[in-house]
């Protein structure tokens, strides 16, 4: 009943119009039924996590509707990465609980997986690019099937011609695109992005932001972006959570239509507001 209450509060469909304006990508054209309503909804209740007695997350409540794009911002050490790792099951909560709900209660095997993109690409240097992408399909289908889907995912991120290369021969931005293809090849219901663009140069970063946004619009997974770059958060997300001292201090909607123009005054105003909040919190300490 608690979950029902939370769900009522959530918007029924976070992207009613924008989805229609996006040109279909090859993948969504192939599997049109999958493109909508594939996201996983996330609910956290009174979530707590401490390391060696030091509390990082302190009684956090959260609901992420299926298919939404949420950004979590905060200063370093505020617990935003820990929150993401908890939601993915990479850490065990000290208290409270997290519930992930897939789109329908089908057989367990067919549930869309949850995937993460790390800050570093974390590619296997000894596997060719296409085989690295196929890692995202571990335990699914035959070898040939995995390869074919991996090639399709590489084409989606614009790296079809790099399939046979070693990761060490690629640029930083290309490696991160391979990591994105690996995360997406299994058609995830939840994609967690743990500051994945932090190490890229400014132009490459904008290109990656647009790529991730485009694929998210086409595939309809739930996206959770952890970042310290407020401009990035307001450019990409439709909801921004500011985390402070293990709690959500600010929960803002970004009602700016897509495609968003960089330097949009509405976005700038929102960015300023969040930065004021973060800097204000800093001077308090």
């Amino acid at each position: 009943m608690l979950l029902d209450a939370l769900r009522r509060e959530a918007p029924a469909d976070p992207l009613p119009e924008t989805r229609a304006t996006v040109p279909p990508t090859p993948a969504s054209a192939r599997q049109p039924a999958e493109a909508a309503g594939r996201g996983i909804a996330v609910t956290a209740r009174d979530l707590r996590k401490s390391f060696d007695g030091h509390a990082v997350i302190e009684g956090l409540d959260l609901f992420l509707p299926a298919g939404g794009f949420t950004a979590v911002v905060g200063r370093s050490g505020c617990g935003k990465s820990t929150l993401l790792r908890l939601i993915l099951g990479l850490e065990t909560p000290t208290g409270g609980r997290i519930v992930l709900e897939g789109p329908e209660t089908g057989p367990r095997r067919s549930e869309p997986p949850k995937r993460i993109m790390f800050q570093e690409p974390r590619l296997l240097p000894w596997a060719r690019v296409v085989d690295n992408v196929a890692v995202g399909l571990s335990g699914h289908g035959s070898r040939a099937e995995r390869r074919e889907r991996a090639l399709a995912a590489l084409a989606e991120v614009g790296l079809a011609d790099k399939a046979g290369q070693w990761p060490l021969t690629l640029s930083g931005g290309q490696r991160q695109r391979v990591a994105l293809a690996r995360a997406l090849v299994s058609r995830p219901g939840l994609l967690a992005l743990d500051e994945p663009l932090g190490a890229l140069d400014a132009l490459t970063r904008i290109g990656m932001q647009d790529l991730i946004e485009r694929i998210w619009l086409a595939q309809g997974f739930t996206a959770l972006l952890v970042t310290h770059d407020v401009a990035e958060a307001v450019a990409m997300a439709d909801r921004i959570l500011v985390v402070e001292a293990g709690r959500i201090a600010l929960d803002l909607r970004v009602d700016v239509p897509r495609p968003r123009r960089r330097g949009d005054p509405d976005l700038a105003r929102l960015e300023g507001r969040i930065l004021d909040h973060l800097l204000g919190a800093q001077t308090d300490i």
């Binding site: 995937r115 790390f118 570093e120 974390r122 296997l124 890692v135 571990s138 335990g139 690996r182």
Partner: peptide, 21 residues
């Protein structure tokens, strides 16, 4: 260890984790 963690998150079996990572 970052690669091993990646392998785990991406659902590799113990055998795959050994032979591929």
């Amino acid at each position: 260890p970052a690669l091993v963690e990646m392998g785990r998150v991406y659902g590799m079996s113990r055998t795959e984790l050994f032979t591929k990572v």
